[in-house]
């Protein structure tokens, strides 16, 4: 029986080691995390601290070496539609149009064609791509591709949106637009979002809670709740104060590691 207070996602002592040319790499060590339904959580940290590894374990692309990853209290065993990943490099199907990409999941899961058509139109409208519905990915800009990638997992009933530096390859202006749109979608749909970034500002702007990670071995260092009301202003003094604080935390982790 599910209770409202049950977390949607729980990581219990999750570790991941990779074998790389005979050496063992601690990509992630003993990670504990609880995410409530509807929460927007950012994973923040320098390169190589295991952010992608953590996300890929939740997605079911990797299995933990030790520990457990649970969604709705059930161990995650492989990829599934309830956890939708948005990759930094989009990973759209280049042979399908925007419509085809968004309809891929529902069709693969055997939904009737009429229903798929409605779903596709609904999510094309949600991300504002009506004019490009029949374009192929190579005809779209990076921002549009990322919109398609988001619509693709939402159309497939994802409850948990996993985003791995989704806006990292975009220019600043497009990135801000998409951040706003993402927050808008999140607030309207009640999604849960696990968002990887190495931009402090992006994390403070988006997250309810920021999970700070550090490398060598990759681990969760601390958690920071963001108390700022939405919509947030990046020039507000509270915003900058939090940003400075996080920046100091990240640097002290590094300093300690260097020492």
């Amino acid at each position: 029986m599910l209770k409202a207070a049950d977390p949607i996602l729980v990581l219990r002592g999750v570790s991941k080691q990779f074998a790389l040319q005979g050496r063992r790499i601690d990509a992630l060590r003993d990670a504990h995390l609880r995410v409530r339904k509807g929460e927007f959580v950012c994973l923040l940290g320098a390169s190589g601290c295991g952010k992608s590894t953590l996300l890929r374990i939740v997605a079911g692309f990797e299995t933990p070496t030790r520990g457990q990853a649970l969604m709705w209290s059930t161990p995650i065993a492989g990829p599934g539609p309830e956890r939708g990943m948005v990759f930094q490099d989009y990973a759209l199907f280049p042979w399908l149009t925007v419509r085809g990409n968004i309809g891929f999941g529902p069709l693969a899961r055997g939904r009737p064609a009429g229903e798929v058509k409605d779903t596709v139109e609904r999510f094309i409208a949600l991300v504002g791509l009506q004019r490009f519905a029949d374009a192929y990915p190579h005809q779209l800009s990076g921002g549009m591709k990322q919109r398609v990638a988001i619509a693709r997992v939402l159309a497939n009933d994802a409850e948990l949106l996993l985003m791995d530096e989704p806006f990292g390859a975009l220019d600043a202006m497009t990135r801000e637009r998409l951040q706003d749109e993402l927050l808008d979608i999140w607030q309207r749909t009640g999604l849960t979002v696990l968002f990887v970034t190495h931009s402090i500002e992006e994390a403070v702007f988006l997250a309810d809670r920021i999970v700070v990670m550090s490398p060598g071995p990759g681990r969760i260092e601390s958690e920071v709740t963001v108390p700022l009301p939405r919509p947030r202003s990046v020039v507000a003094p509270e915003f900058n104060e939090l940003r400075r604080e996080l920046s100091q935390q990240l640097h002290s982790h590094h300093a300690r590691k260097a020492a």
């Binding site: 997605a59 079911g60 692309f61 492989g78 990829p79 599934g80 539609p81 956890r83 939708g84 990943m85 990759f87 490099d89 990973a91 759209l92 199907f93 891929f104 999941g105 693969a108 899961r109 693709r152 997992v153 497939n156």
Partner: peptide, 13 residues
Amino acid sequence: DPRLFEAASMLGC
């Protein structure tokens, strides 16, 4: 692209 396999399997294919 191995990503496409990941994308397909997370979408239920």
